[in-house]
Design a protein around this nucleic acid. Structure first.
Length: 303
DNA sequence: CGGTACGCCTGAAGGC
DNA sequence: TGCCTTCAGGCGTACC
């Protein structure tokens, strides 16, 4: 009976754009806006723009170049080669949407749409963010962007095993807090760190420096697999995430631990537990993820 | 250095 | 039905 009650109590959720979600926003947004010229911009909430919020700084008059992602951040550059760009961070509930010419306004988005860019093709790009943990930064050139990113870690999809090992070996913090730290590694958030640690059978409080080179090699390999699978499934929609076309992802259906505290471990049936690590709710299997565990379980084919 | 707490912010969800 | 409380968390900052 306690089992059933635990399941009922175990459900809590929140959506946040992490690397796979931002990558899908990048792709779907690029399909709509790349190569278009910005005709004008409407700023409904000045405070979501960090830095200059003039029409020029917000790309009015510029043609949109190739969208880039690093970690959870997305760059919308001017195509003129000056390095001028916008950096979008979606925070917890932010979204970028593209509406083609003639699309009617979406009433559901009206309340929290803070920025609207009109494009010369007749379409529009919007920044929407109820909670406003996200924002848009404006930069005039490459150097300004480089300064903004000087403390940002390497992207989770491109970091090598050697460089991650170096970073992990030089800290005494727990592995969960360390992987969440965007200055160490850019792109992972609460969902994917929990999923990754479960798949690797690593307890979230394991000191990062305890991981051997071999552990880190497998961790990086698994991280790439996990992120690739999540991108392929168009990300995780737990509550509110959707891409630039308004389409949600499917990867939440394959979460093994995130949001499942109190439910049974899919590997060993033990009740999943939660703790606070790095200030975040962390779900893990107390049996599969031994604190100093070295064994990895045989990876299931279906991530 | 790290860890802890807090503030920002809204909406979903649970309790009564 | 509806009000009230709790909770979710990325990130910056203060403080120990």
């Amino acid at each position: 009976m306690g089992f059933v009650l635990s399941i009922a109590a175990g459900a809590y959720n929140q959506a946040m754009p992490e690397l796979p979600e931002v990558e899908n926003v990048r792709r779907t947004l690029a399909a709509g806006v790349m190569g278009q010229r910005v005709v004008r911009v409407a700023v409904y909430r000045r405070e979501v723009v960090r830095g200059k919020a003039t029409p020029r700084a917000l790309l009015v008059g510029a043609t949109i170049g190739e969208l880039i992602r690093r970690g959870k951040q997305m760059v919308i550059p001017a195509a003129d080669g000056t390095g001028q760009c916008l950096v979008v961070h979606l925070g917890m509930t932010g979204s970028m949407r593209y509406f083609a010419q003639g699309s009617p306004p979406n009433p559901a988005l009206a309340k929290h749409t803070h920025l609207v860019w009109r494009l010369d093709g007749g379409g529009r790009m919007i920044f929407h963010d109820p909670r406003r943990f996200g924002g848009v930064w404006t930069f005039a050139d490459r150097e300004a962007l480089a300064r903004h990113w000087q403390n940002l870690g390497e992207d989770a999809l491109t970091i090598t095993m050697e460089r991650l090992y170096e970073r992990l070996a030089s800290t005494s913090r727990g592995i969960k807090a360390t992987l969440l730290d965007q200055s160490i590694l850019a792109g992972l958030g609460n969902i994917y760190v929990d999923e990754l640690l479960f798949r690797q059978r690593i307890h979230p409080l394991t000191p990062a420096r305890r991981l051997t080179a071999s552990h880190v090699e497998q961790l990086v390999r698994e991280m790439r697999c996990l992120l690739a699978a999540a991108i392929k499934a168009r990300g995780s929609t737990v509550r509110s995430y959707s891409d630039a076309a308004g389409r949600g992802g499917d990867f939440q259906l394959r979460h093994q631990v995130y949001g499942r505290a109190g439910e049974a471990c899919l590997h060993c049936d033990t009740i999943l537990r939660s703790l606070i690590a790095g200030g975040r709710t962390t779900v893990f299997c107390p049996v599969c993820q031994l604190r100093w565990g070295r064994r990895r379980f045989t990876k299931k084919k279906d991530l």
